[in-house]
Amino acid sequence: MTLQVTGHQWWWEITYQDPSPERVLRTANEIHIPTGRPVRLVLNSTDVIHSMWVPNLFGKRDLLPGLQTVIDFQADKPGVYRGQCAEFCGLQHARMGFLVVAEPPEAFDAWRLAQLRAAEAPKEPERQRGEQVFLRSSCIMCHQVRGTPSAGRVGPELTHLATRQFIAAGTLPMNRGNLAGWITDPQSIKPGANMPMTQIPPRDLQDLVSYLEGLR
């Protein structure tokens, strides 16, 4: 199985390659792999040099702009492994973590199928309002939720955001409070990160967070 990993300041973009284009899956900061199968990570960087390191699975390999490097590895035991950028890459080098989630092949296949689906249209009125907030505010300049008109590609893909365990590249556990804090003032959590501070009225923020929390 081949995954494309692209380093960004300061998050990881992961693309599951597939011969048929509709099965190509783009996600961020959380790599799911099946256990007991060899996996190849093809590494590249869009900005500076990063280095991929999961101490319990494999040693470091640099992500170099203009060059392609690979990591071949296999996870034998299911589990969640933490990884981190190991090459100094600027202001937020310290907060550029990610997770490798190794799960049995069946669970992995189910996960992959679920991730390939576009986001469901929200049913609750609160989440419907939240979607509207998402679509008319600055979020969509950088982010994408498949199934909506949003198409930003420079930030992490959000279609199944709520299935991930962390936000902001392994920085904050995924929950309502952290989401709201991250949206309003990312610069006090991760100074220098490319996510700007956003001014959203409290009511709208509540709806937006509800919407994001439902992106499963």
């Binding site: 202001l91 003032d185 220098g192 501070m197 001014q199």
Partner: peptide, 12 residues
């Protein structure tokens, strides 16, 4: 200066 927080910028 790496002024990452725009707190001193007037609101819109």
């Amino acid at each position: 200066k790496r002024e990452t927080r725009a707190s001193t910028v007037p609101a819109e």
